[in-house]
């Protein structure tokens, strides 16, 4: 399933970029993350609890950042397995400086679910993923003290 959108943060592009690629910030802001450990440069292991509709479960898996091009763009791949099946995601994030204190984040990606998770959750995935991404960015924004 394709997911895309944008989010605007009141902060400078350099600062937003370094925060978005900071594992601690990811661990703190991605909803449901239970732990995140770096295992290699730009590669992390993660445990995360996700609920979509009636299906809830903990996924363990990997996060891999690639094509890191500060402060403009990077790619991110996530894969996880858990009781309700598996999830795989793959996407790109592009940061655009609107002015010195405003950055627009453009994201697009492809998410694939497998197993029982897919059988009941797929049609709700779009909405849930969008909400999770917005929660993530708004948390980053709050942490940067740039929010309202």
């Amino acid at each position: 399933m394709k997911i895309s959108g944008s989010y605007t943060i009141k902060a400078a592009r350099d600062a937003v970029f370094s925060r978005l690629t900071d594992p601690q910030a990811i661990a703190n802001c991605l909803p449901g993350v239970e732990n995140l450990n770096q295992v290699a440069p730009d590669q992390y292991e993660m445990a995360m609890t996700v609920a979509i509709g009636p299906v809830k479960g903990t996924f363990t898996g990997k996060v891999q950042l690639s094509d890191i091009n500060p402060p403009e763009s990077y790619r991110m791949a996530i894969e996880g397995q858990g009781k309700p099946g598996f999830a795989r995601g793959n996407g790109s994030v592009v940061l655009r400086a609107i002015d010195d204190g405003t950055t627009e984040i453009l994201y697009e990606g492809d998410v694939e679910l497998g197993g029982p998770f897919a059988g009941v959750a797929q049609r709700m995935l779009g909405g849930v993923a969008k909400r999770m991404i917005e929660q993530f960015f708004s948390c980053i924004e709050r942490q940067m003290g740039a929010g309202a």
């Binding site: 897919a118 059988g119 797929q122 049609r123």
Partner: peptide
């Protein structure tokens, strides 16, 4: 089914 072979209608909700 989605193109990866996941059954998208695997419950009485769907």
């Amino acid at each position: 089914y989605d193109q990866n072979g996941q059954l998208l209608t695997a419950s009485l909700m769907d």
